[in-house]
Amino acid sequence: MSGTRTRAAAREGRARGGTLRSVLAAPTWPGSVERPVRQRQVGVDYDTAWSRSPAARLARAVIVDNVTRPFVHLVASPRVVGRELLEPLRGPVIFAANHSSHLDTAIVLSCLPSRFRHHAVVAAASDYFFDRRWKGDLWSLTLGTIPMERTRVNRRSADLAAALIDDGWSLVIFPEGGRTEDGWGQEFRGGAAYLAKRCDVPVVPVHLHGVRPILPKGGSRLRPGDVAVRFGAPLRPHGAGDSTARDEDARRFSARIAHAVAALADEAETDWWSARRRAADGSTPDPRGPDVAAWRRGWTLPDSRRTRPPGTREEPSAPW
């Protein structure tokens, strides 16, 4: 008899507890009904169109001016050199910067003149900033990021970027494809040059100096410091329109962009005049550092790119 009662109670309990559960848990799919394949909406496939709606642009403008910029000034106190070079520019521009820290995007955006700042998108690694829906939502709202594959020119993302540039948006891009591991620069990839040629817009070389000590790759703690942001003279691709020479030219143009950023780096370490002279005679130091053993690369790394010692680490757990 007690067994009957228990079973009855169990049945009833299931029905009662089931109300909440039926709301929270998705219904099970009948085995006999075929399940449609769901579209992957993250990574390169994340659709950022919503983030360029007037409402989202307004929200972003408020965030960038009232949160991002004050924050950047607090931790990085950026000093901007060469902003006057941006004066004559009208219409969309591609900003190509070196990359050593997560802060780079916020710093570049903060230092752009407002006509670019509020009408710019940032090419961001699709595998890092768009691997989850919420991350895509967050970054495209606050920084105006669009997904871009690091390693190759993805058709979809290139088309999107080109369309946006054609539509009047400026693009902030880090041609190195990722943050530096050891403080030295990395090879420039061709995306910026390709887009500049395809859309026939100028590329502004940008160099960020002193960001790595604040928050290096793998760092978890902000150590406020001073950053210098240098804008170089805008570069335009030579001989646009010749489709046969296009690939070759894009590569050469990319090298020219890299060289311009290297000259800015040289200027940051020394002074404008000696950097110009070295640029002129082709002896600008390679920001990628010497091609020697890893320890000597580390040994010769300028102090401005060194990270500061981390805090005390945790001891390993005791075996007893």
Binding site: R296, G298, L301, P309
Partner: peptide
């Protein structure tokens, strides 16, 4: 010192 450590330890 940090200079030596950072040049060698990461590699």
């Amino acid at each position: 010192g940090s200079r030596v450590f950072d040049a060698f330890a990461p590699h």
